[in-house]
C-alpha cells in the first residue's frame, strides 16, 4: 500500500502543469493551450492508475494486517 500511496501522491502532483512554467504559452492543440490538454490527460492517467490499483490491491488492502 505504501507504493500505491506514493504513486497516488506523485500522480496528483503531476496533474498540475509544472512543466509548462518554462515553456511559454504559444503551443496549442485544437485551439487550446497545451498545458490544458496536459492537465486533462494527466488526470485521465491518474484515473486509470487508480482503477487498475483497485483491481490489483483490493484484496490485499482488505485483508492486510496492521504493520508497525
Amino acid at each position: 500500500m505504501l507504493r500505491y500511496l506514493i504513486g497516488h501522491l506523485l500522480l496528483i502532483t503531476l496533474t498540475a502543469p509544472w512543466i509548462f512554467l518554462a515553456v511559454g504559452q504559444e503551443t496549442m492543440v485544437a485551439g487550446l493551450p497545451l498545458w490544458v490538454i496536459y492537465s486533462v490527460a494527466a488526470s485521465v492517467v491518474y484515473a486509470i492508475f487508480v482503477a487498475i490499483s483497485y483491481g490489483r490491491l483490493w484484496n490485499r488492502a482488505g485483508g492486510q494486517e496492521g504493520v508497525e
Partner: peptide, 17 residues
C-alpha cells in the same frame, strides 16, 4: 478534475478494510 478523482483514490487506503 484531479480532486474529484483523488477522493476515490484515497478510498483504496481504507475502504476495503
Amino acid at each position: 478534475l484531479p480532486f474529484m478523482m483523488a477522493g476515490i483514490g484515497f478510498y483504496l487506503l481504507y475502504a476495503p478494510k
